[in-house]
């Protein structure tokens, strides 16, 4: 269960490289028994929106997964000039359902694995309740502090898509850049050592992402075509509704007892949410309109959550879990 950093080449020491940090966390949670997933292939504002969290937190089936998710926050773009803020950054997300009794210890050991020595640091769980209005979700938990710096969000989901979570999932979200800056001891994100190499071989975070940050800040704040974005938002909303109707059990196209289009419908929510975030960054959504867009997204999220609960993976008709169904093997 313990990942052994010494078996890894020195340049992949999480204290030396950004990718070493990611690999260590993946190994740690893989050793625990999590499914290690790859990032969802669509833009989203948080790792929570990944189907592996948002949808899998619903329903009765156990589920343990970990993955890196690129996180898009268009309004946080700073043209690469702010050492702490990015419009695209990475979260490492672990979801454990049901949350195990030793989840705090499991989490702390993951910190030890990446080189945070509990003998040297002040680790604290400070109240922080989490709510995501566009996902109709909330939970209670903490932000985890290391020497006064927030390094993770730790949440026990209580509701997702407006549905009470039973069993409850524990969600651990590590802000990877911030964590890496701390353990590599650099003050500017662009100076993070990405590959752990020295001299000419060294690749920094800036080498990989500075150009992107500059270009996307321009895109987010100036270049994005707002008319097109408004249209795409509406298109995604309509497509989502259409898919939800078409995949519903008993609809003309679906003779099964299950919902058959819950995930494609949810992808349209991700689509719409990202368009909304871009429009927000372009400053074309007023304070009053903003609320109504959030409500529209929440309605879609809830409807998708309801649809998911009508799927097999969502635990519909559970009790009659079919042998060989992937979800049954994916659990610990």
């Amino acid at each position: 269960m313990n990942s052994d950093p010494s078996s890894r080449p020195a340049h992949l020491d999480p204290k030396r490289s950004f990718q070493g940090l990611i690999l260590t966390l993946q190994e740690y949670w893989a050793a625990y028994g999590c499914v290690i997933l790859q990032p969802y292939d669509m833009p989203m504002g948080a790792g929570t929106s990944h189907t592996a969290t948002f949808l899998r937190a619903l329903g009765p089936r156990p589920w343990n997964a970990a993955y890196v998710q690129p996180t898009r926050r268009p309004t946080d773009g700073r043209y690469g000039e702010n050492p702490n803020r990015l419009q695209h950054y990475y979260q490492f997300q672990t979801i454990l359902k049901p949350s195990p009794d030793d989840i705090q210890d499991l989490y702390l050991k993951s910190l030890y694995a990446i080189g945070i020595d509990p003998e040297l640091h002040d680790l604290r769980f400070v109240e922080d309740d989490w709510e995501n209005p566009t996902l109709g979700a909330w939970g209670l938990g903490w932000e985890v502090w290391c020497d006064g710096m927030e390094i993770s969000q730790f949440t026990y989901f209580q509701q997702v898509a407006g549905f009470e979570c039973s069993p409850v999932s524990g969600e651990l979200t590590y802000g990877l850049e911030r964590l890496a800056m701390y353990i590599q001891n650099v003050d500017n994100v662009y100076e993070l050592n990405f590959n752990g190499a020295r001299g000419d071989e060294k690749v920094t975070y800036g080498d990989v992402f500075l150009q992107n940050e500059q270009e996307f800040s321009t895109y987010n704040f100036k270049a994005a075509d707002t008319e097109l974005l408004f249209r795409h938002f509406t298109d995604a909303e309509n497509e989502c509704r259409a898919l939800l109707a078409a995949g519903a059990p008993g609809s003309p196209a679906n003779e099964s007892k299950f919902h058959t289009l819950a995930v494609p419908a949810y992808e349209q929510v991700l689509n719409a949410a990202h368009k909304f975030n871009l429009l927000d960054a372009r400053g074309v959504i007023s304070a009053t309109e903003r609320q109504s867009y959030i409500l529209r997204l929440r309605d879609l999220s809830k409807a998708c959550g309801a649809a998911w609960l009508q799927t097999r993976s969502g635990g519909a008709l559970s009790g009659k879990v079919e042998a060989g169904f992937p979800s049954d093997n994916a659990t610990k």
Binding site: S99, D101, L140
Partner: peptide
């Protein structure tokens, strides 16, 4: 003032 459930249990407390 705010309470929660955890794991697969039904007990309600402020944190587990």
């Amino acid at each position: 003032p705010k309470s929660m459930k955890w794991g697969a249990g039904d007990l309600v407390w402020v944190r587990p």
